[in-house]
Design a protein around this nucleic acid. Structure first.
Ligand SMILES: [Mn+2]
Ligand SMILES: [Mn+2]
Ligand SMILES: [Zn+2]
Ligand SMILES: [Zn+2]
Lengths: 138, 138
DNA sequence: TCCATAAATAGAAATCATTTCTGTTTATGG
DNA sequence: CCATAAACAGAAATGATTTCTATTTATGGA
């Protein structure tokens, strides 16, 4: 939590109850959440809350690297907590419970080299999302 | 083209001018396209065309593996031609011209093994999207 | 070749996620 | 404290996507 608040301060964002509640939610749930999921969960804890606020906060958090936007099958916005701000990211998403786990190893260099050699292109970033069933759901 | 028509037949879909035009477009452009892009392009060749038809065709083609849905930065639906129907896919998308090139090599097994060993999870599929600048745009 | 029939389609309308706008409230540095 | 810009709620607008319905069309079998 303190790490996240530091990121906010570093980017001159104010520490507000809404922002803290959103961080808290991502820290505790560790799942990928849609804006409305976040809205429903955060609204319980606060007296008033607007959905546009959630959209704005999620977008801000995404820009400063507190959360990360994931791929979703239905095209809706989906976010998950993200501990590192890299040009690349690997997530494992449980198809059953939606839990998201970050994967630190990266062996994409081989593929990148292949592309740069065979397609003559310059690879600047990549995103890998793996899906399956997590240990608890098995 | 014939390959695609065969896929349609195999799935008991009728061969219609709209469907052929959409296939034609993906085969010739080789780019990732949004539904409205497809609509604009196909409408030129045909006397009448509804946007819902495009959405439906894109969804159908996606289900039977003629095209593939990609990640898009703005959350809109984006599709690209797809020659193989695998549980996994690797695309290289040019950030400048939007051209999409399929990448055949796969070294994700290492990451999958890592996940299965360290997270105790079962990996069922993955999607890797690499972005950069293609040879022509460099 | 012709027909019956289910599939495909156009166009209008509805839906719904997301964004914009505006007036009010709030966090924070000084 | 206070001034001030940032953050916010709530209403409204937007725009992508989906649904609905009446009409057209592709196609397997006569
Ligand atoms: Mn990587
Ligand atoms: Mn692979
Ligand atoms: Zn799970
Ligand atoms: Zn290019």
């Amino acid at each position: 939590m303190d790490d996240c608040l530091k990121i906010l301060k570093d980017h001159k964002f104010k520490i507000t109850p809404k922002r803290k509640a959103v961080i808290e939610l991502f820290l505790t749930s560790r799942k990928c959440l849609k804006p409305y999921d976040v809205y429903k969960a955060v609204r319980k804890r606060l007296d008033s809350l607007g959905l546009p606020t959630i959209y704005r906060i999620l977008d801000e958090f995404c820009r400063i690297g507190i959360i990360k936007r994931l791929q979703s099958d239905d095209g809706q916005l989906v976010y998950a907590f993200c501990s590192s701000q890299k040009k690349h990211s690997h997530y494992f998403v449980c198809l059953n419970c939606n839990k998201v786990q970050e994967v630190s190893v990266c062996n994409i260099n081989g593929i990148s080299r292949y592309i740069e050699k065979n397609l003559g292109a310059k690879v600047e970033s990549h995103q890998l999302q793996l899906e399956g069933i997590c240990s608890e759901c098995k």
